[in-house]
Design a protein around this nucleic acid. Structure first.
Lengths: 138, 138
DNA sequence: ATCCTACGATGGACGAAATCCAAGTCAATA
DNA sequence: TATTGACTTGGATTTCGTCCATCGTAGGAT
């Protein structure tokens, strides 16, 4: 992730304190924070950071391909910093826990041309649903 | 879908005018209405139906497994009455148009045991993204 | 080192989607 | 047909996110 700041600077990003803090908050594996959670964690280090800035920065990171937006359910979107490696998500139907997973093969390949209706298909998002070990016992 | 009303009655549903109208509005193939669209169409036949009732009824149909909830991105959820046949969705990134599609094989099979982290995995939702023929030209 | 200025940050208003709630209504059973 | 608890209503509320006018500042220019 230390690399991320360098890549962003290389793309002409103006490096503000706010952007640095948001990028640092998003560091790690299996991190799937909501925008509000990002705001809360960023505010620990930078109390005056605004919600709009968090949304702006997250949006920029997403369009740069550095962060993946994950819509798990009707709730708030989550932001996944592990965007450089293609992966899918496994979600617990009860508690909402999320894991990054790597299915065999390319999910896109499973959609035959006859089922594409003239669309230019560019991506496939897979959400596996089930019960995590903790929730399976209850 | 005519069958649906019978099935619902069999499950102890109190059959009100409102529920009947909502169920009838959701009839058909490749139907992916938002809650507001369902409300608008229901209101043609039953002007006094309330938004809360539409949401309640849709939620009940979803938990009975009669209707599938489709969360597109950032936009309002859509409701798909074709829930009895397993299928996935192809969504236009630009205009939001949706098609039902049937990929080859069972998407669940692509997730090896080593990637299940002890979860009891029961379903896989796939969303294919791309441009529909109309939007690809613009 | 200091100055400039365009890009970014701020926060409060705004908007869409969905849920909640107390009060009124009615479908189904006896 | 009388009863009753499930259902409906509509307005308030919550949640999530965007917009906008104004202020601040990063980083190149001098």
């Amino acid at each position: 992730m230390s690399d991320l700041l360098g890549r962003l600077r290389g793309r002409g990003w103006r490096m503000t304190v706010q952007r640095r803090v948001v990028a640092e908050v998003l560091d790690g594996e299996h991190v799937h924070l909501t925008a509000d959670e990002v705001l809360a964690r960023a505010a620990v280090r930078l109390p005056e950071i605004s919600r709009a800035t968090v949304y702006n920065t997250l949006g920029e990171l997403v369009s740069l391909g550095e962060v993946m937006e994950v819509a798990t359910d009707g709730r708030a979107k989550r932001y996944d910093p592990n965007a450089r490696r293609p992966h899918q998500h496994l979600v617990c139907s009860t508690c909402g826990a999320i894991r990054d997973v790597h299915p065999d093969g390319d999910p896109l390949a499973a959609l035959p041309a006859s089922e594409r209706y003239g669309f230019t298909v560019s991506a496939a998002e897979v959400t596996y649903r089930g019960l995590c070990p903790d929730c399976a016992h209850a």
